[in-house]
Amino acid sequence: MTGKIVGVFIVLTALLGGAAIYWLQVYGFYETIEASSAKDDVQLTLLVTGEPEPILYEDFQAIDADSSPIRYRACFTTGMSAALLTETYEMIEHAEPRNAPEWFDCFDAKEIGTALESGEALAFLGQKDVIYGIDRLVAIMSDGRGFVWHEINKCGEIAFDGKPLPEECPPKPLE
């Protein structure tokens, strides 16, 4: 009888622990980000200066989590034309959107990735080193829908692996 009680306790503890871990990963750490009054939530890097500049956008929705620098996701719409965007801002060739939690339904990484591959969407550098080693990328669809996510850049990969940084990488900030 004691073995059954211990067995049931172990199974219940494992189920409870698994449910808690699932909830924390999918819901617990995320928080909603409100659009700023300065309207600089969506920025693209200018070809001329290499500096990020706010673009025109509406319907901004975003989530982020302190638990990881690559959990940022955002959705918006813009009326800016593809011609204006490609002539003004720095494009990215190989952008791969990261999955968002299912409940953040405006951001579908599979749809965005397919659109990037087919040319229906264009990818831009939003901001280099928004956090050290992390770039903010922006994809804009032909219908004006836009998506933002964070991605680890080359210097970030090297730094996070604990390897010495090459000369072209900025020095890692002191913690």
Rank of each mutant, 00 (worst) to 15 (best):
Y89Q: 06
I112F: 04
M141F: 08
G17L: 07
V148I: 15
A19V: 09
G50L: 07
G79A: 14
R71M: 10
W149G: 02
Q61G: 12
F160V: 05
G50N: 13
A95C: 04
E157T: 14
A74Q: 08
K4E: 13
I21L: 14
P69W: 05
D143E: 06
F9E: 07
Q127S: 15
F160M: 09
I33G: 01
Q43G: 04
T49L: 07
K172V: 04
A82P: 13
P97F: 05
Q43T: 14
T78G: 04
Y72K: 06
T88N: 06
G3I: 15
V26F: 09
Y132N: 00
G162F: 03
A20M: 07
M1D: 13
M80G: 03
T114W: 03
Q25P: 02
I10K: 09
D59A: 15
P173N: 01
E87H: 13
I70G: 07
G119A: 05
P101C: 05
D40Q: 04
P164S: 11
A115S: 12
A83L: 10
P170Q: 00
F124T: 00
G156W: 06
F9C: 12
K4W: 15
G119P: 09
A65C: 10
G50C: 13
T77A: 04
E111C: 11
A35W: 09
V148K: 06
F147E: 05
S81H: 06
A19G: 12
I70F: 08
A115C: 07
I70N: 06
S37Q: 13
A95K: 04
K110E: 15
G7V: 04
A82C: 07
R145C: 00
V48D: 15
I63A: 10
M141N: 13
P164F: 02
C106A: 06
F29C: 05
V130D: 02
I152Q: 11
Y22D: 02
C155W: 03
I33F: 11
W149T: 07
I140N: 05
A14P: 01
A83R: 14
K154Y: 09
V130K: 00
S68Q: 05
P69V: 06
G126L: 04
I5F: 06
M141E: 15
S36D: 12
K110L: 09
V138P: 02
F76T: 01
W23H: 14
S68R: 08
P52S: 04
H94R: 11
P171C: 02
I134V: 12
I5Y: 12
M141D: 10
Y57M: 08
P97T: 03
A83C: 01
E117W: 07
I63G: 02
G113R: 03
L137C: 10
C75R: 02
Q43A: 13
L125D: 00
D66Q: 14
D129E: 10
K128D: 15
F104K: 02
P170R: 00
A82M: 08
V148P: 03
E168N: 11
I55M: 00
E58T: 15
D143A: 08
E117Q: 13
K128P: 07
E51H: 13
V148E: 07
S67D: 11
L16E: 06
Y132G: 03
A139T: 09
R145Q: 11
E157S: 08
D41A: 11
F124W: 05
I158P: 07
E175N: 09
K154W: 10
Y27I: 03
I134E: 08
G113C: 06
I33N: 06
Q127M: 11
C155P: 10
I92M: 12
E90Q: 14
V42L: 04
